[in-house]
């Protein structure tokens, strides 16, 4: 084969790989739509919110308890993980000596690398019994929040860390020169200047929390329940898919795909907003 021809084929090959890679997400959404169509057409999306209970074999399709379960566990985890993540980043930049900062960063990366199922195992065997001694049954909204917090904290911490690292040194030096204390520099100058990136990190962490399945499934109790306290068991949308997919059929199965579609929409919206925030310049 002559060289220009080989080059041409080669370039087509690259284009095809890129197109196929880009098409995967289209394929995912397409098949989710196809599989959820029977439920959307037969039941209509309203039933999931208006039906009182989730009882598919009895024709009741209410998902509100599970939607609330997902929202509450996500909200709780974000409320804990965002401040802790920001403190972690602040610590690495303004408190820790270089060696300790490196060590601490490795620890946060370690936290990011622990698989979901291992968090679940730890939660189930260690955390749940502790909560149960305090306030049975142990498998609860609280357990889900705590395990999720550990899982999404690295996302906030790593984004915040790199944002604080990108602040112009003159800004911080100037603040010190004005006589601000270390805490003053951090909380009045550095953190406000990095707020966009901090918001980005928090949104990405929220997206992770909504989509997380295994760890939450293992510690949340799996009971479809509108919780009135932190100690009651819940079931999240993702846990519902994992628990029922193996035996669901017909409209029931199709409904689980509707849930999947909703999850994708929620997560993709969050990630897109986070990306937009991240693209615009920090500060301002």
């Amino acid at each position: 084969m002559s060289r220009p021809l080989a080059d041409k084929w080669f370039r087509w090959g690259l284009l095809a790989s890129a197109a196929l890679s880009g098409a995967v997400v289209v394929l995912v959404v397409l098949f989710l739509l196809v599989a959820s169509w029977p439920a959307l057409a037969d039941l209509g999306p309203g039933r999931y919110l208006t039906d009182t209970r989730w009882y598919p074999s009895g024709g009741l399709w209410g998902m509100s308890a599970m939607i609330v379960g997902t929202l509450l566990s996500t909200l709780g985890a974000v409320l804990l993980a965002a401040p802790l993540g920001i403190l972690s980043a602040v610590f690495c930049h303004y408190y820790a000596p270089a060696r300790m900062a490196t060590l601490y960063r490795r620890l946060v990366e370690l936290l990011a690398g622990i698989p979901s199922v291992v968090y679940g195992l730890w939660g189930l065997v260690v955390l749940v019994p502790i909560i149960a001694r305090w306030h049975p049954p142990g498998t609860s909204l609280l357990a889900a929040i705590l395990v999720l917090t550990l899982m999404i904290l690295p996302t906030v911490a790593l984004v915040a860390d790199s944002a604080l690292g990108q602040l112009p040194g003159s800004q911080v030096a100037g603040a010190y020169a004005l006589g601000l204390s270390r805490a003053g520099v951090i909380w009045r100058i550095a953190v406000p200047a990095a707020r966009r990136a901090l918001a980005t990190g928090t949104l990405l962490a929220t997206a992770r929390a909504i989509g997380e399945t295994m760890a939450v499934l293992m510690v949340c109790g799996g009971v479809v329940n509108l919780p009135t306290s932190l100690f009651e068991p819940i079931r999240t949308l993702t846990a519902n898919i994992a628990l029922e997919m193996s035996y669901a059929e017909g409209l029931h199965r199709s409904s689980l795909f509707v849930t999947g579609l909703v999850l994708v929409l929620a997560v993709v919206t969050l990630v897109t907003v986070a990306d937009r925030l991240g693209e615009e310049p920090t500060g301002g």
Binding site: G22, V25, V28, A242, L263, V264
Partner: peptide, 25 residues
Amino acid sequence: RWVRRSLDVLAGVPSIVFGLFGAVF
């Protein structure tokens, strides 16, 4: 640009949803 955007979206898809997709496709 399109491929990059698609990949960004794909990176955000929750793993359980990949499971659903795989179970059908």
